[in-house]
Lab assay of single mutants.
Amino acid sequence: QRITLKDYAMRFGQTKTAKDLGVYQSAINKAIHAGRKIFLTINADGSVYAEEVKDGEVKPFPS
């Protein structure tokens, strides 16, 4: 399943989102408010992988 960072954070909370991605909650808040195009893939085992689309390139998040 693929979902935006904002939607994932709204569904699970910023604290869990940060923990799942290995970053601080403040980084999640800042990324959402900056309007960054970050998409999360939720794997069947429950693990989460995030990618950011920037300038036409897709890069892992966090980099």
Score class of each variant (00 low, 15 high):
Q1A: 11
Q1L: 13
R2D: 03
R2Y: 09
R2W: 13
R2F: 08
R2H: 07
R2V: 11
T4Y: 05
T4G: 08
T4C: 06
T4N: 07
K6A: 14
D7G: 06
Y8H: 03
Y8D: 00
Y8K: 00
A9V: 15
M10K: 13
M10D: 15
R11F: 10
F12Y: 13
G13M: 01
G13W: 01
Q14I: 15
Q14P: 13
T15Q: 14
K16Q: 13
K16D: 03
T17H: 00
A18G: 04
K19Y: 10
K19H: 12
K19Q: 13
L21H: 00
L21M: 04
G22N: 09
G22V: 03
V23Q: 03
V23K: 02
V23Y: 04
Q25D: 08
Q25T: 14
Q25N: 08
S26F: 10
A27I: 15
A27S: 11
I28E: 00
K30Q: 14
A31C: 05
H33S: 14
H33I: 14
A34D: 15
A34T: 12
A34Y: 10
A34R: 09
G35P: 04
G35S: 08
I38F: 01
I38D: 00
F39P: 00
T41R: 06
T41Q: 08
T41G: 05
N43I: 08
N43E: 10
A44H: 11
A44T: 10
D45Q: 06
D45E: 06
G46P: 00
G46Q: 05
G46W: 05
G46C: 06
V48Y: 04
V48F: 04
V48H: 03
Y49F: 13
A50H: 01
A50C: 04
E51T: 09
E52L: 03
E52A: 02
V53Y: 14
D55A: 10
D55C: 09
D55P: 06
G56L: 06
E57H: 13
E57N: 11
E57A: 10
V58K: 09
V58I: 14
K59T: 13
P60S: 08
F61D: 02
F61G: 02
S63I: 09
S63P: 12
